[in-house]
Structure formats: structure tokens, C-alpha cells
């Protein structure tokens, strides 16, 4: 059978399960990544560089935004409770676990070449790579010698951040709420904790078994 390669180190990082390169967290980049400049800074800088670049060459950022049918540059901000919930839902395991791997390459020293040893030794998470990518792109735009290729929607990647679906339009059912107890429409809210419920019956169950917060 095939040998197993451990591409990734075991060390746990807070917030991730310390797992593969493809662990994604939905926390806004501004929260999850320390190396990344704040979105406000990014946008201000982008606008500035775009203004400069538009005189000499079409800017990657501006043309990309207009040509890709209004893909928003705005980082959608979620409230902390929602972020927490989404992080829970994207977890691989409910409890953070670390499983120790004894020997990634059984019986010999990992890495034939320096490149491979560098890859194996890397502590970078997917989030790190992502923020690096964004930061690199921004630095590039600031470089006065930088000349982007003409924007081509077929070949210019949108990137991870900008390819995500946009928020629904206002008339869509954006805030559908469901009864915590039975899953039916959550038309009423618990007066004590605000959790959505469908009926007096479910409200009673909720108050008895689940409602924790009291005024």
C-alpha cells in the first residue's frame, strides 16, 4: 500500500485543530491572522495604489473588481457569537484533539532535499499562507516597478478571499430563524435569553431544560 506522508506538523495552534493545510476557519482574516494588516488599512492602501497605477497601467485590484461583476472587496463582518458558532460548525472534532504521529516517514530521516525538509519543518497553517498571499499581493501593488499583466478574467485568479459567495440580497430569506426545540419557524423569542422558539409548548420545554440566562 501507499506510504503516508505527514506534510504537516503536529503542533496545535489555537483555534485550529492543528491539522492539515486545508483546515479553514471562517473567522474574518482580521481576527484570525496576526500578520495581516487591518482590512481598513488594506482598502485605503489599495485605493491609493490603484489611483497611482491607473495613470501608468491598469491596476490589478481595480480592474479585477469591476470586471468580475461586482465582487465585493468589503470584508463581511460577523458578530462574535456568529463567528464562534461558525467556527464550531467547521471543526473536525468537537473537542480539540492532537494525535501524535510517531514517524511520518517510517524508518528514515524525513526529506531528501532541502526543499522537502523545509516543507516538512514548516509550521505554517493554511491561514498563514492565505494571509501571506494577501499581504504579498498588497506589497506588490505598492512597488513602483510593478507592472501587472493585463487583466484577463479567464486566467487571473480571484483568490480565496474574493471567491467566496456574497451576502444574500436584502429580499432573500437572510435571517431565517428556527425553533431551538423542534426546528419549526422560530416566530417568538424567549423573553429571558432571546433564543427563538415556535410556540408556547416549545417555550415551556426550553425554560425547563435549556434556558440558562435570567434577568
Amino acid at each position: 500500500m501507499y506510504p503516508t506522508v505527514e506534510l504537516l506538523p503536529n503542533s496545535g495552534k489555537t483555534g485550529t485543530t492543528g491539522a492539515s493545510s486545508w483546515y479553514y476557519s471562517n473567522a474574518p482574516p482580521s481576527q484570525s491572522v496576526s500578520a495581516m494588516p487591518k482590512p481598513e488599512d488594506l482598502r485605503a492602501r489599495k485605493a491609493k495604489t490603484a489611483a497611482v497605477a491607473s495613470i501608468t497601467a491598469p491596476s490589478f485590484a481595480t480592474t479585477a473588481a469591476s470586471a468580475s461583476d461586482g465582487t465585493s472587496d468589503v470584508v463581511v463582518k460577523l458578530d462574535p457569537a456568529t463567528v464562534r458558532r461558525i467556527n464550531e460548525l467547521e471543526k473536525v472534532n468537537w473537542h480539540d484533539v492532537q494525535i501524535k504521529i510517531e514517524a511520518p516517514f517510517s524508518g528514515r530521516k524525513p526529506g531528501k532535499t532541502q526543499n522537502v525538509r523545509r516543507v516538512l519543518a514548516s509550521q505554517k497553517t493554511f491561514q498563514n499562507h492565505l494571509s501571506d498571499d494577501i499581504a504579498n499581493h498588497e506589497l506588490q501593488l505598492q512597488n513602483p516597478l510593478y507592472k501587472p499583466d493585463p487583466y484577463d478574467p479567464a486566467t487571473t485568479p480571484l483568490g480565496y478571499v474574493r471567491s467566496v459567495a456574497e451576502p444574500p440580497s436584502t429580499n432573500a430569506t437572510r435571517y431565517r430563524r428556527f425553533c431551538e426545540i423542534c426546528g419549526y419557524w422560530g416566530t417568538i423569542g424567549c423573553l429571558r435569553c432571546g433564543v427563538r422558539l415556535c410556540s408556547g409548548e416549545c417555550e415551556a420545554t426550553h425554560k425547563e431544560a435549556r434556558c440558562t440566562r435570567r434577568f
Binding site: Y2, P3, V5, G18, N93
Partner: peptide, 11 residues
């Protein structure tokens, strides 16, 4: 059972 996901490859 708890899962931890590495990248597996072949030779």
C-alpha cells in the same frame, strides 16, 4: 473516534 487530517501521498 477523533479525526486528524494529514495529506497522504503515494510513491
Amino acid at each position: 473516534i477523533v479525526f486528524r487530517q494529514p495529506v497522504e501521498k503515494c510513491d
